[in-house]
Design a protein around this nucleic acid. Structure first.
Lengths: 140, 140
DNA sequence: GTATATGCAAAGGGTTTGCACGGTT
DNA sequence: AACCGTGCAAACCCTTTGCATATAC
């Protein structure tokens, strides 16, 4: 089913703003509401931030985008076309690495088996210290 | 080393507010800045929210408390006396389960081995759907 | 034509900051 | 006595909301 049909199917209207926001997320791969707005405003300068928020909510509702919390700030919206990935955020340098979900497979299976919990591993970042910063710390 | 010595050792002063905030975190086990303030104000009604924020920052700096992000709202501060635990947050009912880190051991080892990443698994909650909500969903 | 979507501006929640006063060292 | 910590109020960032207008259906 095509993206505009997805909106229709749920009773939402297809508007230029929704088209542009979805295109922005797909182009960027991922971005915060502010970043998405900036992208949208290249073509349509009058679009408002509140429209971006409302639109992302709608697009998420119909399954065209998802969001993740990478740090203490704004969430990051992702195209659903991208593979789900785990975000590793370094406490020291604030760097972000994206890795495939494979490493977590056994862990997710265990949560399912032992807790009955179905995990959305892409939704929240995993915090810690990255290789580079650990090495720097060790050298001190 | 005792808690007041930890503060001194880092050049911080020991004040009634810091004493009360630390006691509140230890009493509550965990709590948001607002909840901690409420607890502190039972004994000292004039203490201000900004003092709680500044104090939690200091206490975290000297390693007397830690914080975790459980949802989209305020962070939760924890006593470091508590064992580190993983927070499972249900997307559907917003319920929170705390489980021991054991289940994640292999996963954390793999991140260390393969990515050089040292994970603080307690810092960010893991999102998904809990057993109860999955069963409800299945019955629909 | 009618209900939904939008832009704008204002309000809201949570957090941080500037400043003068007060308290710890 | 010197400096750090505090209370208070204002500022701040991000997000949501109310309302009148515009637009997709």
């Amino acid at each position: 089913m095509d993206w505009d049909q997805r909106l229709h199917a749920r009773g939402y209207r297809v508007t230029p703003q929704r088209t542009l926001v979805l295109a922005a997320v797909n182009d960027l791969g991922h971005g915060t509401p502010e970043e998405i707005l900036a992208r949208v405003q290249v073509e349509a300068p009058k679009v408002n931030l509140s429209t971006v928020y409302r639109t992302l909510e709608v697009l998420e509702d119909v399954g065209l985008v998802t969001h993740a919390h990478l740090g203490h700030g704004s969430p990051t919206y992702h195209s659903v076309d991208d593979d789900v990935h785990i975000h590793l955020v370094c406490r020291t340098c604030d760097g972000i690495e994206s890795i495939p979900v494979g490493v977590a497979r056994d862990f997710l299976d265990a949560l399912d088996r032992e807790q009955g919990f179905s995990t959305d591993i892409g939704h929240m970042a995993i915090h810690g210290v990255c290789r580079t910063c650990r090495e720097v710390a060790r050298d001190d």
